[in-house]
């Protein structure tokens, strides 16, 4: 059998392409005169790619629409605000990242245990409600208890921020990859297809849903910590901004959730569009264009950009095969 050939090619694609991208990413900060802007732009790419990949990890396969991204991302902000303030960091930055991830994980675990029996729109509404709840609670605590509005976080250099984001991205991709390839990935997809049947086939649906939800939340929390050291000023508005719940979701849908590249490609394209529009003369139309592209995607490309590429590829392959058999 030629099974070995196939698996070699697959391995090449599975490990080779990401490795090339990773090496390219590592060298971004060294590109001469462009470096200053480049590193900022690429940091932004990475933030949205991680959020989109983490979001798709749970929602892409289970079909549970989570809008809680901003809640976990915001937790990361406050982990940084409390442990890494401008007056003097209490612990090293990587510990803050771990704390942000851990707190997000625990909160997602608890919230998941309570709400993951909700279905469809009810779950989506609850998760959005969680963001608003976090916003209110944190705002109350800051203003009424501490008597302040925001906290200033220690500023990190662009390079440190960038490499932390690359690190979190690598972890996110590896986690997403291993979940997808493992039997748990199969279980998640079975939950997305028919949860009742999955439960009666021996899948511990509640536990798997909660765990993956919590893992994806941990990644979101980790990103939040790093972004806070970039924006340096943390208040409830920036931390629990509902747009952070929507954007990565829309980016992942645009890119296509059928495979790991989809959310990453969607996030890159949209972040770039956002960047162009917001710096150019069209900055007021960003949301409008964003919305139009999204409507077009949902109407004409239900499996996103990756679906489109896959279709085109299949067509090219088909045409080639036809040409070969005719010849």
């Amino acid at each position: 059998m030629n099974l070995s050939n196939i698996s070699w090619r697959k391995l090449g694609l599975n490990a080779g392409v990401p490795l090339v991208i990773l090496i390219a990413l590592i060298f971004v900060p060294f590109y001469g005169s462009w470096a200053d802007y480049g590193i900022t732009l690429f940091s932004l790419f990475l933030v949205y790619i991680i959020l989109a990949v983490a979001w798709a990890m749970f929602t892409g396969s289970t079909g549970y629409l989570s809008l809680a991204t901003a809640a976990f991302y915001g937790i990361g902000f406050y982990a940084a605000a409390l442990l890494y303030p401008a007056e003097g960091a209490l612990v090293p930055l990587f510990v803050v990242v771990l704390v942000g991830a851990a707190v997000s994980f625990v909160l997602a675990f608890i919230v998941g245990a309570i709400t993951l029996r909700l279905k469809g729109i009810y779950f989506a509404m609850f998760t959005l409600g969680l963001v608003l709840l976090m916003y209110q609670v944190v705002n109350y605590w800051l203003i009424s208890v501490l008597g302040i509005r925001g906290i200033v976080v220690a500023l990190e250099s662009n390079e440190v921020i960038y490499y932390y984001l690359v690190g979190i991205l690598v972890v996110s991709i590896l986690v997403a990859y291993f979940i997808k390839r493992s039997k748990w990935g199969l279980a998640l997809r079975s939950i997305g297809d028919n949860e009742e049947a999955a439960a009666h086939t021996g899948v511990n649906v509640t536990m798997i849903k909660i765990l993956v939800f919590a893992i994806s939340a941990a990644l979101m929390g980790a990103v939040g910590v790093i972004v806070a050291t970039k924006t340096t000023y943390v208040d409830a508005n920036t931390a629990f901004n509902p747009m952070i719940s929507f954007s990565p979701a829309l980016m992942a849908i645009f890119g296509g959730m059928g495979n790991l590249y989809g959310p990453a490609i969607g996030a890159t394209i949209f972040t770039y569009i956002q960047e162009i529009l917001q710096t150019g003369s069209l900055k007021n139309y960003y949301m409008l264009i964003f919305g139009l592209i999204l409507i077009a995607t949902i109407l004409y490309l239900p499996s996103g950009m990756m679906g489109l590429i896959q279709n085109l590829w299949n067509r090219i392959k088909g045409a080639r095969r036809r040409a070969l058999t005719r010849g």
Binding site: S190, A197, T201, G202
Partner: peptide
């Protein structure tokens, strides 16, 4: 059935879990 999964994966889930 798990409609988006191939037959083999439908059965595999039973075997794995």
């Amino acid at each position: 059935v798990f409609s988006n999964l191939p037959v083999i994966d439908n059965v595999r889930i039973g075997a794995l879990f």
